[in-house]
Computed example of a mutant assay.
Amino acid sequence: MIANMLSPCIATEKVEESRDFYVKHFGAKVSFDCGWYVNMQVGKETSELQFMARRESGPPACNPAGLMYNFSVDDVDAEHARLTAAGLTPVMPLEDHPWGDRGCAILDPSGVTLYIYSDREPTEEFKQFYKD
Protein backbone atom coordinates (compact mmCIF):
# COMPACT_ATOMS: atom_id res chain seq x y z
CA MET A 1 0.00 0.00 0.00
CA ILE A 2 1.10 3.53 -0.75
CA ALA A 3 -0.84 5.97 1.40
CA ASN A 4 -1.72 9.33 -0.11
CA MET A 5 -1.71 10.94 3.32
CA LEU A 6 -1.36 9.98 6.97
CA SER A 7 -3.30 12.10 9.44
CA PRO A 8 -3.98 11.43 13.11
CA CYS A 9 -7.48 11.62 14.55
CA ILE A 10 -7.73 12.10 18.30
CA ALA A 11 -10.90 11.04 20.10
CA THR A 12 -11.36 13.64 22.82
CA GLU A 13 -13.98 15.42 24.89
CA LYS A 14 -12.19 18.68 23.98
CA VAL A 15 -12.98 19.03 20.28
CA GLU A 16 -13.79 22.76 20.40
CA GLU A 17 -10.82 23.59 22.62
CA SER A 18 -8.50 21.61 20.36
CA ARG A 19 -9.83 23.30 17.21
CA ASP A 20 -9.47 26.76 18.72
CA PHE A 21 -5.97 25.99 20.05
CA TYR A 22 -4.60 24.86 16.67
CA VAL A 23 -6.29 27.70 14.80
CA LYS A 24 -4.96 30.31 17.25
CA HIS A 25 -1.43 29.02 17.86
CA PHE A 26 -0.60 27.09 14.68
CA GLY A 27 -2.63 28.84 11.99
CA ALA A 28 -4.68 25.72 11.26
CA LYS A 29 -7.34 26.01 8.57
CA VAL A 30 -10.59 24.22 9.37
CA SER A 31 -11.78 22.25 6.34
CA PHE A 32 -14.66 20.40 8.04
CA ASP A 33 -16.48 21.01 11.32
CA CYS A 34 -19.77 19.36 12.26
CA GLY A 35 -19.35 20.05 15.98
CA TRP A 36 -18.31 16.58 17.11
CA TYR A 37 -15.73 16.08 14.33
CA VAL A 38 -13.21 18.62 13.06
CA ASN A 39 -10.67 18.31 10.26
CA MET A 40 -7.90 20.91 9.97
CA GLN A 41 -4.95 21.52 7.70
CA VAL A 42 -1.84 22.51 9.63
CA GLY A 43 0.98 23.94 7.55
CA LYS A 44 1.51 22.28 4.18
CA GLU A 45 -1.16 20.37 2.28
CA THR A 46 -0.10 16.97 3.61
CA SER A 47 -0.33 17.93 7.29
CA GLU A 48 -3.80 17.39 8.72
CA LEU A 49 -5.26 16.75 12.16
CA GLN A 50 -8.69 15.55 13.14
CA PHE A 51 -10.45 15.63 16.49
CA MET A 52 -13.66 13.81 17.26
CA ALA A 53 -15.92 13.50 20.27
CA ARG A 54 -16.84 10.06 21.49
CA ARG A 55 -19.85 8.61 19.71
CA GLU A 56 -21.86 5.52 20.61
CA SER A 57 -20.14 3.39 17.99
CA GLY A 58 -16.79 5.21 18.06
CA PRO A 59 -13.55 4.78 19.93
CA PRO A 60 -13.14 5.87 23.55
CA ALA A 61 -11.38 9.14 24.33
CA CYS A 62 -7.67 8.95 23.61
CA ASN A 63 -5.17 8.50 26.42
CA PRO A 64 -2.48 10.81 25.06
CA ALA A 65 0.28 9.60 27.40
CA GLY A 66 3.23 8.86 25.15
CA LEU A 67 1.67 10.47 22.05
CA MET A 68 3.73 13.20 20.42
CA TYR A 69 3.27 15.27 17.26
CA ASN A 70 6.53 16.54 15.77
CA PHE A 71 6.39 19.98 14.15
CA SER A 72 9.39 20.82 11.99
CA VAL A 73 9.73 24.60 11.68
CA ASP A 74 12.28 26.94 10.11
CA ASP A 75 13.03 28.89 13.31
CA VAL A 76 12.26 27.09 16.58
CA ASP A 77 13.61 30.00 18.63
CA ALA A 78 11.07 32.36 17.07
CA GLU A 79 8.26 29.82 17.56
CA HIS A 80 9.25 29.28 21.20
CA ALA A 81 9.22 33.05 21.79
CA ARG A 82 5.84 33.42 20.07
CA LEU A 83 4.19 30.54 21.94
CA THR A 84 5.51 31.52 25.37
CA ALA A 85 4.47 35.16 24.75
CA ALA A 86 0.98 33.78 24.04
CA GLY A 87 0.99 32.23 27.52
CA LEU A 88 1.86 28.62 26.68
CA THR A 89 4.25 26.89 29.08
CA PRO A 90 6.78 24.43 27.65
CA VAL A 91 6.79 20.97 29.21
CA MET A 92 10.26 20.49 27.74
CA PRO A 93 12.66 23.43 27.58
CA LEU A 94 14.12 24.81 24.37
CA GLU A 95 17.48 23.13 23.93
CA ASP A 96 19.91 21.61 21.44
CA HIS A 97 19.86 17.83 21.06
CA PRO A 98 22.82 15.72 19.94
CA TRP A 99 20.74 13.73 17.42
CA GLY A 100 20.43 16.83 15.23
CA ASP A 101 17.76 19.27 16.27
CA ARG A 102 16.91 22.12 18.61
CA GLY A 103 13.48 21.86 20.12
CA CYS A 104 10.95 22.30 22.90
CA ALA A 105 7.55 20.82 23.71
CA ILE A 106 4.13 22.04 24.84
CA LEU A 107 0.82 20.28 25.47
CA ASP A 108 -2.35 20.71 23.47
CA PRO A 109 -5.79 20.81 25.20
CA SER A 110 -6.19 17.02 24.91
CA GLY A 111 -2.81 16.39 26.51
CA VAL A 112 -0.91 15.52 23.32
CA THR A 113 2.75 16.57 23.47
CA LEU A 114 3.74 18.90 20.63
CA TYR A 115 7.46 18.74 19.90
CA ILE A 116 8.51 21.82 17.94
CA TYR A 117 11.97 21.73 16.44
CA SER A 118 14.42 22.93 13.80
CA ASP A 119 17.13 20.72 12.34
CA ARG A 120 20.73 21.15 13.45
CA GLU A 121 23.96 19.33 12.66
CA PRO A 122 24.05 16.11 14.72
CA THR A 123 27.04 15.32 16.89
CA GLU A 124 29.58 12.80 15.65
CA GLU A 125 28.02 10.20 17.95
CA PHE A 126 24.68 10.43 16.11
CA LYS A 127 25.85 10.99 12.51
CA GLN A 128 26.39 7.25 12.10
CA PHE A 129 22.67 6.57 12.51
CA TYR A 130 21.51 8.70 9.57
CA LYS A 131 20.71 6.83 6.37
CA ASP A 132 21.25 8.28 2.90
Rank of each mutant, 00 (worst) to 15 (best):
I2Q: 09
A3V: 08
N4T: 05
M5W: 03
L6N: 10
S7Q: 13
P8S: 03
C9I: 15
C9P: 00
C9D: 08
I10H: 04
T12M: 05
E13H: 01
E13P: 03
K14I: 03
V15E: 09
V15H: 11
V15N: 09
S18C: 15
S18V: 06
F21L: 03
F21Q: 03
F21G: 04
Y22F: 15
K24M: 01
H25P: 07
F26H: 00
F32T: 10
D33C: 09
C34V: 13
C34N: 14
G35F: 05
G35V: 09
W36Q: 10
V38D: 11
Q41S: 10
V42S: 04
V42I: 14
G43N: 04
G43T: 04
K44H: 09
E45T: 02
S47E: 13
E48A: 09
Q50C: 14
F51K: 04
A53S: 15
A53E: 14
A53K: 13
A53Q: 13
R54L: 07
S57R: 14
G58I: 13
G58Y: 10
G58L: 12
P59G: 12
C62T: 15
N63K: 14
A65N: 12
A65C: 02
G66S: 06
S72D: 11
D74N: 14
V76S: 15
A78Q: 15
A78Y: 11
A78P: 06
E79T: 08
H80P: 06
A81S: 15
L83G: 07
G87C: 09
L88K: 00
T89C: 04
T89W: 03
V91M: 05
M92D: 01
P93R: 06
L94W: 00
L94K: 06
L94Q: 02
E95D: 13
D96K: 12
H97M: 03
W99K: 10
G100F: 09
R102E: 08
G103R: 00
G103W: 01
G103Q: 01
C104W: 07
C104A: 12
A105P: 02
L107F: 01
P109E: 02
P109Q: 00
V112P: 02
L114C: 00
Y117L: 02
D119Q: 10
D119S: 07
D119G: 07
T123S: 15
E124C: 01
F126S: 06
K127A: 10
K127C: 08
Q128M: 03
F129A: 07
F129S: 06
K131A: 13
K131D: 09
K131I: 14
D132F: 05
D132R: 09
